[in-house]
Design a protein around this nucleic acid. Structure first.
Length: 294
DNA sequence: AAACTAACCTATTCAAGCC
DNA sequence: GGCTTGAATAGGTTAGTTT
C-alpha cells in the first residue's frame, strides 16, 4: 500500500510536469483507469467483538498482535490495521487531547487509555520534546560531561504518538522509555516551560516491541516527595535507583539548558495546581497516590 | 552523510449500506 | 437524507538500509 501510494504520488508529479507537453501534442487515447475501491468489508459481530476487546486493551497494536487478531478473526491484517486507524480516529476517548493540553498545560507525553489519540495539531504546536538517553542506562552510565554535548543537543520534535507509544513495529526494546518533556510554548515574554518535566515510563509488555494505549503513570512531583507513588514503590530497587539518577540528571540538564531556573524549577510557588495535577487512567488510579504535593 | 525506503501515524474525505 | 463506518488519500514521522 505504501509503495502504491508513493508511486501514485510520483505518477501525479510526472503527469503534472508533462501536462503542457501533452497539451501541445496530439492526444493519445490512454484512458487512465482508476481501480475500483475495495469493496466494503462487513465484519461479523464476533469479529467486531474481538477487535473491540483488543482495542480496549491496546489502541496501537503492533504487527504481531494484528496478525494474531487476523488469525482469530479471519480478517486480513491490512483490514485490521485500517480498522484500528478508524477506531482511533472515531473513538478518541473522553476528552480532546489538544484541548486538554492547552487548558491544563500538560506534557504531551502524558497519555492514557482514556485520552484521545494524539492529534496532528499537537505536533504542529510548538511542543519541543527531547528524547534522550538516561544517565544510567542498562548498558552503562552516560557520560554527562560537556564534551558530550552533541548527544545532548540532539533535540527532536516527536510525534506525540511516538513519544507516548513508541513504535508499534517491535523496535522498542528497552524496559524504560523515558522522555524529558518540557512543554515550551511561546509566551508574551518569550518561551515558557509549562511543566517542570514529565517522565514517561513504559513497561515491557507481553510483546516487547508493542505499545499500549494504557500508559503507566508518569513520574510526577511526588517522586521527590516523601509520599512516593505506590506504583514506583513497587518497582524493584534497581529500577528505582535508575529513576532517581534520571531525575537528577534531567534537572541538571535543564539547569544547563535553561539557566533561568524560574522556567523549569519545580519550585512550589510558580506552579499552578493544574499544571501539577497529572491525569491517571481510571484503571490504575487505585494504585497511585495522585494527591498533588503542593 | 545523504538518500532512499518501509512502516507507522493522524486528519480528512469518500462512499456503502442501514435506518 | 442522516448516520455509521470501512476505505482511500495526503502529509507527516522514525528507523533501518543503501549509496
Amino acid at each position: 500500500m505504501t509503495w502504491f501510494q508513493k508511486n501514485r504520488k510520483i505518477q501525479k508529479q510526472v503527469e503534472f510536469e508533462c501536462y503542457f507537453e501533452e497539451s501541445q501534442a496530439p492526444k493519445q487515447d490512454k484512458p487512465k483507469v482508476k481501480e475500483a475501491r475495495r469493496s466494503r468489508t462487513h465484519f461479523s459481530r464476533f469479529q467486531t467483538d474481538i477487535l473491540i476487546e483488543a482495542f480496549e486493551k491496546n489502541r496501537f497494536p503492533g504487527i504481531a498482535t494484528r496478525e494474531k487478531l487476523a488469525q482469530r478473526t479471519g480478517i486480513p491484517e491490512s483490514r485490521i490495521h485500517i480498522w484500528f486507524q478508524n477506531r482511533r480516529a472515531r473513538h478518541p476517548g473522553r476528552k480532546q487531547a489538544t484541548a486538554q493540553l492547552s487548558q491544563n498545560s500538560q506534557c504531551p507525553a502524558l497519555k492514557t487509555t482514556d485520552q484521545p489519540a494524539p492529534s496532528k495539531t499537537l505536533s504542529s504546536r510548538l511542543s519541543v520534546t527531547t528524547a534522550l538517553s538516561p544517565p544510567h542506562t542498562p548498558s552503562g552510565p552516560l557520560n554527562l560531561s560537556r564534551g558530550h554535548q552533541k548527544q545532548l543537543s540532539r533535540t527532536t520534535v516527536l510525534q506525540p504518538s511516538q513519544v507516548v507509544q513508541g513504535r508499534g513495529d517491535g523496535q522498542n526494546s528497552s524496559v524504560f522509555i523515558g522522555h524529558l518533556s518540557p512543554v515550551v510554548t511561546p509566551g508574551e515574554e518569550g518561551f515558557h516551560t509549562q511543566a517542570p518535566f514529565c517522565l514517561q515510563i513504559q513497561e515491557r509488555l507481553q510483546d516487547p516491541g508493542e505499545s499500549s494505549g494504557s500508559a503507566v503513570p508518569p513520574l510526577d512531583r511526588s517522586t521527590r516527595a516523601p509520599a512516593v507513588n505506590q506504583h514506583f514503590r513497587e518497582l524493584d530497587q534497581k529500577h528505582f535507583t535508575f529513576l532517581q539518577h534520571w531525575d537528577e540528571w534531567l534537572r541538571s540538564m535543564l539547569a544547563e539548558w535553561i539557566p533561568d531556573e524560574k522556567y523549569w524549577s519545580p519550585g512550589e510557588s510558580e506552579l499552578h495546581p493544574q499544571q501539577v495535577q497529572l491525569q491517571q487512567p481510571a484503571s490504575i488510579s487505585h494504585q497511585v497516590d495522585t494527591t498533588p504535593q503542593q
